[in-house]
Simulated assay, not measured.
Amino acid sequence: MISDELLFEVATDYYVKGMLQKDIANKYGVSRVQISKYLKMAQERGIVHIEVEQPSVKTSIRREYEDFFRERYGLKKMFIARGARNEKTVLKALSREVHKYLRTLPEKPMNIGLGWGNTIFTVAESIERLERPDWQLIPLSGGTARLADKRFNINHIVQNFATRLSGKAVPMYLPFIFENARQLENTKQSLEYMNIQKLWNSLDIIICSVGYSIARSPLFRENLLEVSYADELEKNNVVGDVLTHYFDINGKRFEKSILDKCINLSFEQYMNAGERVIVAAGHHKVDGLVGMLRGGFADVLITDEFTAKFVKEYIVYDEGGQ
């Protein structure tokens, strides 16, 4: 039985130190063919991971979109990944762009709030490691045991993100929604609630995505939010949401008293954050991104080149301009 330790040493010699297989064979007293087998075994056991990374977006294309969205909507920064047809590939590419963005931030104590959903979940799982021990990662909503989908387990997302950044995760043990407003009012007297509100009032960065489908949202599928509320949203032509704050294609917000029963970052707190970062890609997100931009709900957009193209084309066609 070939040990993992030996496979690790052989893989390090070959992939990290750049040694030739024949020289590694001489080092361990085996044949070059055996070294080739060791390298294959290292991959099979998960010791070696090989990825083929897409090239960066052309500078001219990136600048075209940066200029367009800055001039139209005052967007401060854009990070654009190469487009891909496969959703998994796109999400991993977005993770790399989020990493690039985070590297531009100062290495000082910061409060970074995180949303939930498939995009942010994937970023938290796959983002390249970064040493930022002074950063606090903070959930922007309460949790719920009624959602089995781990992509909406806010503490899981925050913990994974913090681990990747060597930062500190701030757990949230309060529920997302109460049966009535009175229960929420009682909870507001708790130390945990007051502490999370203090953090929400001092957010340096918010990283979240744009919701796009009321019908597919687990908040409605699992009856966390009333179906009648979903009907109202659809009647008002809602196209997306940011942290459960819904809006139409023109960025007009639509909120009802149902959110008075929720522990969720308020829209005012969202807008008062130091920098609001939206991470989203895919044709299904285009309408939500258009509404988000028109509403002025983001400072930074992290997307892929296909989505940037679709959003720009939609806006130009809809506004009848260039």
Rank of each mutant, 00 (worst) to 15 (best):
T307G: 04
K285L: 08
Q54F: 08
T303I: 05
V227L: 12
I157Y: 01
R103A: 10
D231Y: 11
K22A: 15
K168T: 14
T89G: 02
Y212S: 10
S257P: 00
Y270C: 06
A124Y: 07
V290I: 02
H245G: 03
D260H: 08
N160W: 13
L102P: 04
V239W: 11
Y14I: 03
M78H: 03
A308C: 07
I207W: 11
E222N: 14
I127G: 06
M1Y: 04
I47G: 00
F310L: 13
V98G: 10
F152N: 08
D287Y: 07
Y270F: 15
D260S: 13
K40V: 13
R85M: 14
I206M: 00
Q21V: 14
I263R: 02
L75R: 07
V16C: 09
F178T: 12
E185N: 07
A162V: 06
R221S: 13
D241V: 06
S228Y: 09
L7Y: 01
P218K: 12
A81D: 12
F176H: 13
M194W: 09
I24T: 01
V57F: 07
D204V: 00
V16T: 12
G117S: 05
N86P: 02
D13Q: 07
M271C: 13
D318W: 15
V311M: 01
R45V: 02
L130I: 14
Q159N: 07
F68S: 08
E125L: 13
T122L: 15
L165S: 03
F254W: 04
L105H: 01
R146T: 11
T163H: 11
E255T: 04
N223W: 08
Q183W: 01
K76Y: 01
F220G: 07
L243K: 01
S257F: 02
F79H: 00
V52P: 01
N201I: 07
D318C: 12
N195C: 10
I278T: 05
A281E: 01
A81I: 10
G211S: 11
V52Y: 05
A81C: 12
A84C: 07
L91Y: 02
L75M: 11
Q197P: 08
E5C: 05
E305T: 11
L165F: 13
I214V: 15
P106K: 14
V158F: 11
Y270I: 05
S217V: 15
V311C: 01
